[in-house]
Amino acid sequence: MERVPITVTVNGQTVSAEVEPRMTLADFLRDELGLTGTKLGCEHGVCGSCTVLWDGAAVRSCLVLAAQADGAAITTIEGLATEGQLHPVQQAFWEAHALQCGFCTPGMILTAVALLSEDANPSEQAIREALSGNLCRCTGYQNIVRAVQLAAERLRSSS
């Protein structure tokens, strides 16, 4: 199969690679770059576990091809903490006990980061709606919602 050359910025680093045209972005991140923090829960676009940030917006990496990401800036869960310092959303997830098995957590956190970058003060209903594309089978969501509220509060008071 003809390989496609791409150049992507992943977590701030520029990566050039040749990929099979049918390789998904998720498989590229996981298998080619070893960034296995991006999870695959359904591979058909429903569960949101594979969510990454694509130029700051939440995108399901199981639904897009690596080749399409040419020129994009991708942030995965591995790129969120800076210098060993958890991102406020990560910190809030920890404090609010917003994770159990942790499998949905990277996708949830990145979805929350994208939401808060657009709406610094979302209502509970807005948070629930923003998260409704991400499935979690462990927590019942309440603590995840609380975590996003907590992070929103802290981000507002620090900016």
Binding site: R30, L35, T36, G37, T38, K39, L40, T76, I77, E78, L80, A81, L86, Q90, F93, W94, E95, H97, L99, G102, F103, T105, P106, I109
Partner: peptide, 18 residues
């Protein structure tokens, strides 16, 4: 607070597929 959480929060936790 759960001591296991940091590795899940940062994507370092390794599940079977990883």
């Amino acid at each position: 607070k759960r001591v296991e959480d940091p590795r899940f929060l940062t994507g370092e936790a390794r599940y079977l597929a990883d």
